[in-house]
Write a protein that binds this DNA or RNA. Sequence first.
DNA 1: AAGAGACCCTGGATGC
DNA 2: TGCATCCAGGGTCTCT
Length: 270
Amino acid sequence: MPELPEVEVIARGLDGWLPGQRIQAVDLLWPRSVALPAAAEFIAGLTGRRFERVGRRGKFVQMALDNGATLFVHLRMSGSLYRAPAGAPPGPHTRALFHLAGPCDLYFADTRKFGRLYLTYEPAEIVSRLGPEPLGDDFSAGWLTTALRGRRTRIKPLLLDQTFIAGIGNIYADEALFLAGLHPSRVADSLSAGEAGRLHAAIREVLQSAIARRGTTLSDYRDAEGERGQNQEFLRVYGRAGWPCERCGRPIERTVIGQRSAHFCPACQI
DNA sequence: AAGAGACCCTGGATGC
DNA sequence: TGCATCCAGGGTCTCT
């Protein structure tokens, strides 16, 4: 599932070749992938436009266009954006095809159909509700310590709340809490400044390592060139229920917190 | 503020 | 074997 590191790897990959490419035509194979505007308007608004810089905000791929508009893509669970030779036949899960003037086309594929495309002149209407970027300057240990005050929810669901902090999903929330030695059910407000500092460092470490390993591929995820990531070889708790904790040897447990699976070591995470 | 549940979907796993 | 059902997952929405 694409979370911040996977989206970052995809955005960097696209930014290496997409800027300057002109969109000649758009095929919408599953129009409901477009969140806004209406499908016909989406196609008309993109046709003839040239891509500029490609970046990321939270879990959104952000693609600037030469007329000031922005194309946002949220990959949700199974979405992917990749380059394919022009004229290549769409696969069974291709939902949108961007025919470019060059030798390659841009494909949006999405098995689960949860991913969404947004074309807008007002980026704020898409991303203004997002919390700070965990790898950005706004996200400091001090900010986290203060932000946790008065929050009576459990820390794991709070890390998944995109309005609190942007880009963390289930895998990296579990991994960061393990690295910080914090139980996912801890009430956010109960963390000491020291614990908040550990969590801050753990979040950065987990995300940066995953980017360096080009993301976590458990099933669907591929980067913009169709390659698998390597970070799945380094997960310490996610998907490892029953396996020994690499720190203490006790079996990793899986439970449900806030209607999401949570993996943790019952001895190392307090 | 917090949390439960529904919804959107598919394919792999499980149950009968 | 073949079919039905369950479940995971991110985000948004409604309801309590």
